[in-house]
Simulated assay, not measured.
Amino acid sequence: MSQQNVTLRPVQDGDLDAFFAQLRDPQAASLAGEVFEDPNDRQGFDAHWRHLRADESVHVRTIEIAEQGGARVVGHIRERTVSDEHRVSFWIERACWGRGITTQALGQFLHEITVRPMIARVPRHNKPAVVVLRRNGFHHVGEESGYDAARGRVVDELVLRHA
């Protein structure tokens, strides 16, 4: 795994086009813990991001990598409180998988956002996300199953914790 020049920064309006395109990748969506019921619904997507960005309790950052000619938006990472848990989640475009970018971004994010414990809930079949979390000090603390209305099926999740 080579080192990449990974930067986290506040989300800007122009980032949303990249996020929307990333969300619509069916292979990436199949690994995600949270998905939109209709990934082609740009209005719903924009409303979701307006809500996230307006909520002062949500910490969300754009993930960029340096490339020739400038920086490129490759994903996002966030922490928000859900049911009294500080939950972290991340999304990285598929072209960047396996390059260490997500591992670096999560490490930077954990340094910046210091609320603990932080919880990650990951679909059992998303083994790469579990690797990223473990490399950043998360430990397996449980397993849960729940109905996912957007997918129309039960999803088995692994629960990991960072103290």
Rank of each mutant, 00 (worst) to 15 (best):
A105L: 07
E143G: 12
C96P: 06
R94P: 14
D13T: 12
I63D: 07
D17T: 12
Y147D: 06
A66N: 03
D41F: 04
E64H: 00
Q3L: 15
I77D: 02
E67S: 13
N136W: 05
I63Y: 08
S2I: 10
E144V: 10
V82H: 05
A18Q: 08
G146A: 11
G142E: 12
Q22M: 13
P26S: 12
E34Y: 00
N40W: 13
V159W: 14
V115R: 13
R50G: 01
I101W: 04
A129D: 01
H48N: 05
T103D: 02
E112T: 00
A150Y: 03
R80C: 09
R161D: 10
V88F: 05
K127P: 00
F19G: 03
L158T: 09
Q108T: 01
A71L: 14
L133M: 10
S145T: 07
I101S: 07
K127D: 10
A95W: 06
E157T: 12
V132I: 08
Q4C: 00
L23M: 08
V159L: 15
N40R: 14
V73Y: 06
H125T: 11
R9K: 07
D38Y: 00
W97V: 11
V131K: 15
G98N: 04
N5D: 09
V154Y: 08
A54R: 11
G69C: 08
R9S: 06
T7V: 07
A18E: 09
F138P: 05
F19T: 02
M118H: 00
V159S: 13
R135I: 04
K127T: 13
A163T: 10
L110I: 11
E79R: 12
A54N: 14
T114K: 14
Q108H: 04
L158H: 11
D46S: 04
R72T: 14
S83L: 15
L16H: 04
V130M: 13
R99I: 10
D25W: 08
S89F: 00
G107N: 06
G107C: 07
M1E: 11
E143S: 14
H76I: 01
A18C: 10
E67A: 14
P10N: 12
A163R: 09
V60H: 05
A29V: 00
R134W: 07
R53D: 01
V141A: 03
P123H: 01
V82W: 02
E93S: 15
E56L: 12
V141I: 11
D46L: 15
Q4G: 00
R94V: 12
E85I: 06
R153Q: 14
G70Y: 07
D38P: 00
T114H: 09
R153L: 09
V122Q: 03
H140P: 07
V11N: 01
E85N: 11
L8A: 03
Q104E: 11
Q3H: 09
V82D: 05
G70T: 10
S57P: 07
H111S: 13
P123A: 04
N5W: 00
A29E: 01
E67Y: 03
D41L: 04
A129F: 02
R61K: 12
